[in-house]
Design a protein around this nucleic acid. Structure first.
Length: 432
DNA sequence: TCTGGGGTCCTAGGACCC
DNA sequence: TCTGGGGTCCTAGGACCC
């Protein structure tokens, strides 16, 4: 049987690369992109990495250092990144339709049908085309399983001589070469092995991918559950994590943000809960879903040990809905239940779950809808449809719920936001 | 002063049923 | 008084991912 072949295509420093597409003057210069609320550093160009800027470092601690080293700083601009991501994925699809979009900046391709090709050369061709068509540089790892393809792409990024593609299948027959390669991969860098599992494994003297691969199955399952066992099987070259080419239906929708400054007033927290519920409900309708279970949570900052309160409240509806006024009503009530005076809150959020498709709803045989009720349901649907259309056309917040508040003192910070070059004409001219 | 947001999967344990 | 055994479903919590 011929060897399976998975490719992982991974965009290099994706958010930084997106910013550079429209600011070519920054090519070769250090840049970083911040998380929401300008909280942490979540993307670094190679030049910034070389300066020693750490991933997930709090911005306020690095600010002076970044200024001194003339590092360009951007707030995250998700409309821009989402749009460029779509262009990259569309380009990849032209090369291989058997594809799983794994995240905003990564995709797996299944290349089994390409066994007559030189896969390394094919990878090069894909890489060059993506760069030419979108301006985004990518690294490509090719291997017999998804987990190994992840490792291959890491190796490729770390090695400047790799020319952007690393094909593990080429050396698969040479077990001493493969062993030597897996020996150099720290166990905590394996896909699926996080901080807790690494610490556990470390206690048993397991520090490399090779050592993990060579433990017996029963032990692996006991220590790391079946997911850990699958990871080890994949390291042996046995495909155990399937390609998800048609992602399963979504199970939950979440909307939450940190506040721009600590919130102590119930009214402010309530406005935020309402505003996030409005956004979650928009997403619900956009995807043709209805929700049955609503949750609201609130928490103080983990970095203030003297002031801790976190609480979570859930409400289950009798009938699934996508009607914002109803969802907002419950969000507001739940927030009141869990809010306590005297705390400095850092974040609230809402979660919608128990999702089902609007179009194949389970109707109850016993339920008879009167014409008046039917009319009301239709009126509500029209109202949602119209507000969504207005907000889409004229921008979010054109039609707003009173409960979202006007001043919104809790709103997040975004001081270094770049223009939405690809999705707003009005902001495109800012380049020139 | 200031530390992201949005997802998924697995397991254990309780509730419930026959 | 003594109160089985096995199955399913749901939920909370933990761990992981980008």
């Amino acid at each position: 049987m011929s060897l399976a072949a998975y490719a992982l295509v991974d965009c290099n420093n994706f958010y930084c690369s997106c910013e550079r597409v429209f600011r070519p003057d920054l090519i070769g210069k250090p840049i970083v992109v911040l998380s929401n609320n300008d909280g942490c550093i979540i993307s670094r160009s190679n030049e910034a990495k070389k300066l020693g800027v750490q991933m997930a470092a709090p911005y306020f601690k690095q600010k002076r250092f970044l200024e001194r080293n003339k590092v360009a700083v951007f707030s995250s601009n998700y409309p821009l990144y989402g749009d460029l991501s779509e262009r990259v994925m569309n380009t990849l699809r032209a090369f291989c339709s058997d594809m799983e979009i794994y995240s905003i900046d990564e995709a797996f391709l299944r290349l089994d049908g390409f066994s007559t090709y030189n896969l390394t050369a094919y990878g090069q061709h894909i890489r060059n085309t993506v760069y030419k068509w979108t301006g985004i540089p990518v690294s490509i790892g090719i291997a017999p399983t998804k987990t190994l393809a992840k490792i291959a792409s890491h190796i490729c990024k770390k090695n400047p001589n790799s020319s952007g593609v690393y094909n593990m299948n080429d050396q698969w027959g040479n077990s001493s070469q493969i062993n030597a390669m897996l020996e150099k991969v720290p166990v905590n860098e394996i896909w699926g092995i996080g901080r807790k599992s690494s610490a556990k494994l470390f206690n048993y003297g397991i520090t490399t991918a090779r050592q993990l691969r060579d433990r017996d199955n029963a032990w692996l399952q006991k220590m790391l559950t079946v997911t850990g066992l699958y990871t080890a099987l994949e390291l042996r070259g046995i495909p155990s994590i399937a390609l998800d080419d048609a992602p399963p239906a979504r199970r939950s929708i979440r909307s939450s943000r940190s506040f721009g400054q600590p919130v102590t007033e119930k009214r402010d927290a309530q406005e935020a809960a309402v505003a996030y519920m409005v956004r979650a409900a928009e997403k619900l309708r956009r995807e043709g879903l209805l929700a049955t279970t609503l949750s609201v949570f609130i928490k103080t900052s983990e970095h203030r040990p003297g002031d801790q309160h976190a609480e979570y409240c859930t409400h289950t509806l009798e009938k699934p809905t996508d009607y914002t006024p109803l969802l907002v009503h419950h969000a507001s009530e739940m927030l009141c239940k869990i809010f306590r005076n005297g705390h400095q809150y850092q974040k609230v959020g809402v979660l919608l779950s128990g999702l089902e498709s609007k179009h194949n709803q389970q109707g109850s045989l016993l339920e008879l809808t009167s014409p008046a009720t039917q009319q009301q349901i239709e009126a509500e649907a029209r109202l949602m449809c119209v507000t969504d259309a207005i907000n889409k056309k004229f921008g979010r917040g054109t039609v707003q719920y009173a409960g979202e508040g006007l001043g919104q003192p809790w709103k997040m910070k975004q001081k270094n936001l770049s223009p939405r070059y690809t999705t707003k004409w009005g902001e495109l001219r800012e380049i020139f």
